[in-house]
């Protein structure tokens, strides 16, 4: 048999919706913890479940998996989440 590496269309289950999806992101959400009231709407609305909480209950973004859909920016009632362009980071 040939020693060449063979590539077939198979995927094993992975963490995240489609593996490490951070490289899909063109805009990155940033949390302003001065404004955050820990209401958890961002956690509730995130389609990829990338929010966890720190010891004090503040939301933390997992940037390995955040695709940058910015739903969290839209739903935050305190304007505590804004975004920056990836190209400017």
């Amino acid at each position: 048999m040939s020693e060449e590496r063979k590539v077939h269309p198979l995927l094993k289950p992975v963490h995240g919706a489609a593996g490490r999806t951070a490289d899909w992101r063109t805009q990155t959400p940033k949390i302003d913890y001065e404004k955050c009231t820990k209401c958890e709407l961002c956690w509730l609305n995130c389609p990829d479940d990338i929010f966890s909480h720190d010891e004090e209950g503040y939301p933390v973004i997992d940037y390995e998996y955040c695709k940058g859909c910015l739903i969290c920016v839209a739903v935050c009632p305190r304007d505590a989440i804004h975004f920056v362009n990836e190209s400017e980071i």
Partner: peptide, 19 residues
């Protein structure tokens, strides 16, 4: 468990066709 023929980004797609 495996998934057959799931979404392939352009680089992966090209690798499949090259194979």
């Amino acid at each position: 468990p495996m998934s057959y023929g799931a979404i392939s980004l352009p680089d992966e797609y090209i690798a499949l066709r090259e194979d």
